[in-house]
Each structure stands twice: as C-alpha cells, then as structure tokens.
Design a binder for these strands. Structure first.
Lengths: 220, 220
DNA sequence: CGTACTTTTGAATCGCATCAAATCTGGTGG
DNA sequence: CCACCAGATTTGATGCGATTCAAAAGTACG
C-alpha cells in the first residue's frame, strides 16, 4: 500500500496570467468566479498521489479542479481507503469553507491542475457578491443530492445492486463511462476490488451487463 | 411491514398566529427566517407514519420541523427502508429547493409539527435577502459534512465499527443519547435490526460499550 | 527493463442477512 | 379495566456473499 507523502512543496505554483475564457470553456463552473476572486487565483499543478491537504489542517485555501482528478479520502484503521468525493472539474471540499480545519485528506488521483484561492478572499467574495453567493448555494445543494444518492447506494448490501445503482444514478440510460480504475471504483462503492472484479465478471457471464474497457452498460 | 398511506389531507393545517419568539427558542434555526417568509408560514401537524411528500412529487413546499421527527426515506426493491435524513428540528430536504421534484419520500416518524413554506416564496426570499442566503448556505455546508460522515460510516464493513463511528461522530465524548428506536438506528447504520441487537449485546458483554435504555457509551 | 500498481483468479473464513418464532411494550377500544 | 393488536425487542439456526490472504499475470512509466 502506498503511503501518501505530505510535501506541499512538490506542488508547483505556476505564475502565469490565467486565460479565463478558455478556463471557463473547459470548466463552466469557473464562470461563477467573480472578478475580484479571479485576480487572486493561483494555478497549482500537483502530481499523481500528491497530498495537498490533510485532515486537521487549518482551512487556508479553496481548490477548483481544472484538469485531472482530486479526491477527498479517509484512511480507516486497517489502511483501507474510503473515497468521500471525487472531482474531475469543479470545486473540491466545498463544505470546508466554513470549517476551521479539514475533516479529510485531499490527494491528486493523477496529474492534476487546480486553481487555488485563499479561503479568506473566497469568504469575502461570498459576502460581497450576492450572485456568487447564490451560485455557491446551488452548488452545495447539488452536492447534498449527490451524497444522498451515495448513502443510498452504500446502504445496499450486495455488490450487484451497488453496481446497478451506480450506473443508474451516475450514468445515463443504463450506460456509464468509467473515469477511474476498477480498484478506485471498488473503493467508491464500498467493496473490495476483488469483489468488484468478480461481480462484473459474473454479471457479464449472466448477460446482465456489457463490460468494455471503460464502459459499463446494463442490458435490458 | 407497514405500508405508508399517502393522504396529505390527514395533515392538519393549523390556522393560528405563530408565536415566533417561542418558536425560535425551541428551534434556533427558525431565527434565520426573514419577516416576509414568516408571514406566509403555515403550521402543519402530521401523525406518526404519515407521508407528506413522495418521490416524484413536484416541489411545492419546504418544511421546517418544530417538534417530533421527519425523515427522508427510500424503499428498496425488497421493501427495506433506507433513512437518508432524519430531522428533529430544523429543515428537511433542504436540497430539494432547486429541484423540480422530490427524489425521496418524506414521513413523520412520530407525531410531528412543522412549518410549511411555499417553495416559490422561499426561493424569492433567498433572492431578495442576502443575509438569509448566506445562512442557508452555511446550513447546506453543514449538511454536506454530515452526509460525508455518513458515507464514511456506511463504507465500514463491520457492525461494531459502524456503531463506534456513529457514537463518535454523532455523539460527544464517546456518549450518545438515542432519539430513535434501535430498529431505526439499524436502518440508519445500514444493517438489519437483528444484527444491531446482537452487536450491542456482544459489545456490552465484552465491556466495550455501556448500554442503557437510550444511552450508548464507549468504555475506554 | 525494472518497479509499482492494477487486474485477475483461487481457497478459506467469517459476519451479516434471512427466516422463524417468542416475548415485551404501548396504545386502542370494548 | 382488560383484551387485543401492532410494532419493537430478542434469541436461534442456516446459508450466502463478501472479506481476507495469497499469488500470478498484465500494464504503465521513468
């Protein structure tokens, strides 16, 4: 098992003027950021497996994923990894904004580029800019709904049901393109990777599921 | 298994002027409600097991629990009940506000009194009142953190660990006062009620847990 | 071209779900 | 007041499915 080394000095701050129109084209969420915040945004590049904050750290920054993937995780006592949030574009750890310290670890799942805002500037912007405040609210509400769906999924007690629920709630029309390794998917579904491999195989054999490289499709 | 009958006519609308100071004393969250919304609030009394909205229903109202308990639930295909949210004071289904229709069922777990606001008035208030918008945002962020904790708990794969996690994250100092039946707690923990009874018994026998009527305490 | 990680399969074990049934409890109506 | 009923609590027996441990083959990357 990999031990994530916490060394934020590895994270490269890229000091170049940001091209907002193209950022917004890639990540529409970036369009919500008001001008005052744009001015203080810093671009940050993180390598795969790099930790950019840890549980207990004081909340000093807010991150927006531009490319790659950032994750909130928790390591349980046996070393198992629980994925609490996976962001491939958009904010990560939004709810930390009004906490003193982070309540989980954040890592880059692959080579990842993010925008970094100081949390104080961010809070200030939310106080000053009504429209921004409203968008932020919509974003949080969406996260709540997503998490409820995940709780519902984790409450199912068979691997088959969790896979089906995942495809139906995260994909569309019974089809989903996987954006992660199966091992990661297993962690997100709350089962071991072995169980997931076997489940996919069995469902495929029974003709319930089409399994391609990175595409899962339920057969009706 | 009880079948919940959907008959919102049973819900009693109580047309008496609301005493806001005393409401706020009971439920501090009510203090966030701006004056314009207070004027249109209606008090509603629901009996135990009464359903007050269903999955798929258009979102027409927002509810605030004053006394009793309201729950968001989903019934899986085998008739099992999954508890998605439990509110004993404060809002329920906050995140539905910017959805077209509800994504789960809502029932009163016991005799429950709520305030009801039309969602259009509520949305309007959020648009007009900056301070209210900010409080709402804080509330949603809190809900996100709570749900993350629940996901983390449901990802644990032993009943003992879930019980401990529950006590540590929902209680304080290793002690929790239960506000629900054990059967309900089991549903919230994602295990069967039999498994929970046995787990509590075993933990008690091993001296890990003190189990009183409605009080669970971890022994160090 | 070695190293680290993922994918895959196998075998043994263990815990939870499931089905069954008895007791207990609080509330309702005769 | 008591009989009754619905639901909660509790215990038992059984089987299945996921975890766990082990190991081999595949793959990506510097």
């Amino acid at each position: 098992m990999l031990i994530y080394v916490y060394d934020s000095n590895h994270m490269k701050k890229v000091n170049e003027s940001l091209n907002w129109p193209s950022l917004i084209a890639t990540q529409p969420v970036a369009g919500l950021i008001p001008g005052t915040l744009r001015e203080v945004a810093e671009r940050v590049d993180a390598n795969a497996y790099e930790t950019f904050f840890r549980i207990g750290d004081p909340v000093r920054h807010i991150y927006l994923v531009i490319s790659g993937e950032a994750r909130l995780i928790r390591i349980d006592r046996r070393g198992g990894e629980v994925i609490l949030q996976r962001s491939r574009g958009g904010f990560i750890a939004e709810a930390s904004l009004d906490s003193r310290s982070y309540h989980c670890d954040a890592i880059a799942a692959e080579s990842t580029t993010m925008l970094m805002f100081t949390s104080s500037a961010f809070r200030q912007a939310l106080e000053d800019d009504f429209v921004f405040c409203q968008s932020w609210q919509t974003l949080l509400a969406k996260e709540v709904r997503k998490l409820r769906a995940q709780c519902e999924r984790l409450a199912l007690n068979s691997a088959v049901e969790r896979v089906i629920h995942y495809i139906e709630s995260e994909g569309s029309d019974g089809v989903i393109k996987l954006t992660q390794s199966r091992k990661s998917l297993a962690a997100e579904l709350g089962i071991t990777h072995e169980a997931l491999y076997r489940t996919l195989r069995r469902m495929q054999n029974e003709g319930v599921l089409e399994v391609a490289e990175n595409r899962l499709a339920i057969r009706v």
